[in-house]
Structure formats: structure tokens, C-alpha cells
Amino acid sequence: MTHPRRLQTTRAFGWAVLALVLIILAVVAVSLVVGVAGFAPGSANFRLIVEGIRLPRALLALLIGGMLAVSGVYMQTLFQNPLAEPYITGVSAGAGLGAVIALGVLPLAFSHLNLLLPACAFAGGMAVTLLLFLLLRDAASSPLKLLLLGIALGTLAASLMAFILIAFPERMLRGALFWLFGSLAGASWWQVGIGTVVLVAGCAWGLLSFRALDALLLGREDAHNLGVNVPRLSRWLLVVATLLASVSVAFAGIVTFVGLVIPHIVRILFGAGHLKLIILSLLCGMALVGIVDLAARQLMPPGEIPLSIITSLIGAPFFILLLLKVRGGGYV
């Protein structure tokens, strides 16, 4: 795939960053103003609705988008494969499984321990990533193999999840749909706090090691020859990518395709260099999920539409286009 060269300049990058930030700020502004409860400053629970519900939700939407997109960037680099993404590689399903185990199997009193959910989601996501990594380490990681292994592990996790839902119907029932299709209905300030820390840490790490990540794109051997400690870098990539994806699943359930679509749009337009890739993917992801959650709240009021339905509507056609364009499994 060729890159439109004129977008690869620093000036274009600058404008893109600025435009995205403005879009994000606009999305947040709109999120604060619109909603089924209307906008009536001065009404009794105006502050509660805007500051207790809309603002944390809008901010969490941005954080989820950023986490998924950056996680997608890292996974694609780690597996040296354009198809890697938290959803496709089964990490999201693993994290969802962890969350459902926390909800369904652990004693009820624990469901009030808000931190336990993200922790279990992280453990589930980590387990799947570790398995993928172990299974792929010896083999020359071909895109097809990764894709199939990811699908296999994802399906395995999803079926275990379904089994738990059936085995503990009295606890889960339809409430668990939340995990399977993604929703920000429970967004709250402590989640925004944790999400901010995780996202900032995840991005900072990538930005500090962008040269090593760029070297990895040349292949493991070449990266090694350039002085990169490839096993160490890979391990970090794994941990950071899983952390980002798992925390997002823990807070918002499984939101599909953001991790795949965003890095690709950015790479096609602005090239594969990690400095720009991470920054722009972060901002694009934020903007996309911000807009998607706005749609989730507003399209069918007062009911809400699960996020993944909307992201997949956008993501699936893009994915199909991508599959048709990637020839021979080469990195885009």
C-alpha cells in the first residue's frame, strides 16, 4: 500500500493533532450538553447529571478509545502482523472471560469490590496473550496462523464465558450482555482515574521506546542487529498492550474493531513510524469512541445501544476492505 506522501510531513502531523484535539473537545462538549435528561442549568439535579453522569462517561469513552487504539498499535508491532488487535487475537474475549468469572463465580459480596473486576479482566486478557505468544514464538509468525490461533483462543474464551452465563443464570442473566457488547453506562470517576493513569503510562512507554519499536518493524533479526533487546521489548509490548486492552474491557466490556481500524487509518495516512502512529492512533481512538458513545446514547433514547454494534458497523466494512488489500500478508 502506498502512503500519500504529502501527509507524511511534520506540518501535516501537527495539523492532524490539532484537528483531532479540537474534535475531541467538541465531542466532550456535545456529550455534556445532549442527553435524554435534556440540558437545563439551574434545575435541581443538573450538576448530578452533567458532572456525575455525562462528564465521567464522556471522558471514559475517550480513554477506552485511546487504550484500544494504542493497544492495537502495540499488538500489530509485537506480532509483526497487521491483523493483530485485541479483539481478533482473543485478548478481549479473555479479559471478558475474566470479568464474567469475577461476576459469576466469585461470592456475591465481591461484586462490590470495584477493583476486582479490572484485576480479573487483566488476568484473563494476560492469559490469552501469553498463550498466543507461547504458541507463536517458535513458528515464523505468519499472519494467517496468528489470525487462526487468535480466533481459536477467542472462541475458546467466548464459549467458556457463555458456559458461565448458562451455569449461573440467576446471577448473570441478561445483565452480562454488558460485557459481551460493550457499554459505558456504568462510567464513573474512579474508572476515569485508573483509565487515565493506565493510558498515560501505556502511551509514555511507547513514546519513550519508539525507536526500538520502529526497529522491530524491520524484523526481529534486524532489530537485534540494531542493538534492540528484542525479547525484552516483546515482553514489554505484551504486558502494556494487554494492560491497555484489559482495563478497557473491564470498564466498558468488549468494544470491537477500534484497535484494528484506528492504527490502520493512521498508518495508511501518516506512515508506520511509531512516534506519530502512537500519538495519532491515541487521538483518533479517543475521537471515534467518543462519537460512538454519543451515538449509543442518542440513537434510540432512552434505551442505549451497545458500543460494539456501532463500532462494528463502522469497523466491519473497513476490515473487509483491508483483507482485500493486504497482499501476501506483508506488513502495511
Partner: peptide
Amino acid sequence: LPEVGGYVNPSVEKIVALK
């Protein structure tokens, strides 16, 4: 009566607005 959404996907905001 005002609706707050389905029982799988109720709107927190709508519920709160009803005080």
C-alpha cells in the same frame, strides 16, 4: 409514564433525571 429504556439497557441519566 416516562420510559427509562429497556431493562437490559436502561439510561442512568434518564433515571436520575426522574429524581
